[in-house]
Design a protein around this nucleic acid. Structure first.
Lengths: 223, 223
DNA sequence: GACTCACTAGAGTATATACTCTAATAATGA
DNA sequence: TCATTATTAGAGTATATACTCTAGTGAGTC
């Protein structure tokens, strides 16, 4: 593996573990057993590493959240979307911790992240739309759908911080992918009132899969 | 005003402005035109300042979110609660930015914040309960009410980060209390499906008050 | 064999950070 | 009055951080 890629990989791992704030370029170099000079040969500065990680994050989420087109969605699709988003969130989980400082340090990142959020929101909106076509949720007016999509986004992106700050007993807080995915329970709680009567039972059953305390993560695959 | 209080006040102001990460004890001392030694005479370390600010934050929110007792609530009460919570959030807005690092730096804060969140969640839960008594929202089972309360909390505590990261055009992002309170629009969107038919119109009207883009903030006072 | 060039080591720099120490001054109370 | 205590200034320390600079090394090419 090329040094440049190893730097990205190790940075991501250390950032996820301890937060970007706590990890210096010297830490990264030390972990890789390379010299700081070597690291700075491959990256102009720390912000460039973060930015490149953002691009990878963005690419992954964009790919999985690709517009569902115009075909109606079935329930398994909903589960699949949720799993995919939480997977992405998990892999780049350092990112949503003090995002504000990251954006303050890099205007490219600020602009890129603004666009990224916009695409995510309209993707969620589109998914709502196609879930309505599939008869799973009742159709809503556009402004309401947008506000709902934003709420979903707010719950998704804040769920991890909640777990690591309000719930954690350990010091520092550690987290597993399974715990993170309990956030899906919260998202489905959010959508529940909008589910059509005939789909209420199946959605409740799906939701139950992610109930906090339940540590069986069934594989929800489709598509 | 006593130096100790001036340190707290200025720290809060600078933290809110630029984030705790970017503000050193030397910055605080410089802003106050006192010596670093003087600052450290009043506070053992930076974490102690943060902790004391947390105690004030906690006290304020606890006060305003005090259990609504057992009397039913009217719509104005709901508006009042939302305004109060967002006011508290605004006044100590540095806090929910990289909260994780703050908790990592101080075990007292971690423990205190865990309890605090618990109290907030059960307060929200209780408010739901009394809104149901007041005929404003339809009664729900306890587990559903808890999950709803958590979603409300997640939206509230993440709304500011959303504004400052996804929406901001300036660099660094600045924010006004009025913009922040547009988060109430999101919270009411969340509660809308649970509102009883007879209260749907009034709640929609209240919600409209906070619609993003609308910059008139009517004073919602009661109690 | 000389030359190039991507890559690497490692010492070093300027600056910032959290925090300490000593000595001086102001307030207080007997 | 005078001693005690609270408060302050200001220089200083140890450490960390992001980043730079120079001097290579080794694999390939003509």
């Amino acid at each position: 593996m090329k040094t440049r890629d190893r730097i990205l990989q190790t940075s991501l791992q250390l950032f996820n573990q301890s937060g970007e704030r706590a990890i210096s370029t010297n830490h990264i170099a030390a972990e890789l057993a390379i010299s700081p000079g070597n690291l700075y040969y491959h990256f102009r500065n720390k912000a460039d590493i973060v930015y490149e990680l953002f691009l990878a994050y963005q690419q992954q989420v964009d790919y999985y959240l690709a517009a569902p087109g115009s075909q109606p969605l079935v329930l398994a699709d909903l589960a699949w979307y949720l799993e995919a988003v939480f997977d992405g969130l998990w892999q780049y989980r350092f990112f949503h911790r003090d995002l504000e400082s990251l954006l303050d340090a890099d205007p490219r990142l600020r602009a890129g992240y603004g666009d990224f959020t916009g695409r995510c929101l309209s993707a969620i909106n589109g998914i709502f739309n196609q879930l309505a076509s599939g008869g799973i949720i009742t159709p809503r007016s556009e402004p309401l759908r947008s506000a709902m999509a934003l709420n979903v986004w707010l719950v998704i992106t804040n769920w991890m911080a909640y777990l690591k700050t309000a719930h954690a007993t350990e010091e520092p807080a550690v987290l597993s992918l399974a715990e993170l995915k309990q956030g899906i329970y919260q998202v489905l709680t959010l959508e529940l009132p909008h589910v059509t009567p005939e789909y209420r039972e199946p959605v409740l059953a799906l939701r139950e899969t992610y109930r906090p305390g339940t540590f069986c993560q069934a594989a929800h695959q489709s598509k």
